[in-house]
Amino acid sequence: MSRYFTKDHEWIAVEGAEATVGITDYAQSQLGDITFVELPGEGSEVGKGDSASVVDSVKAASDVYAPVSGKVTVANAALEDEPELVNSDPEGEGWLWKMTLSDTAELEGLMDEAAYQAYVAEL
């Protein structure tokens, strides 16, 4: 399994044509206490860069963009009752949705973990 990162602070863990998407630890720390997550509908099509989800924190609401194009297969229902999972485990139990990729070539423009950490260090 490979994990990629966007400049907008999403992560995507890919296995074949299946992937899981969430926001990074840096993103959750910037947002602060997360109080609500609006998840994409299961079965919905998302294009790379589309706003697919909204994360609401005490401070502000923020769009989460799809890192790549594809079809949402599962949304993380656990977040309905426990949105704080995105704070406590953003790159694990706080995942947002799973999707099938329509074009794995879109992954090529994304960062790997080392590149993302270097990017965040500059912010």
Partner: peptide, 9 residues
């Protein structure tokens, strides 16, 4: 994700 400017600014 974009960090929306908030009312504290």
């Amino acid at each position: 994700m974009i960090f929306v400017s908030d009312t504290y600014n």
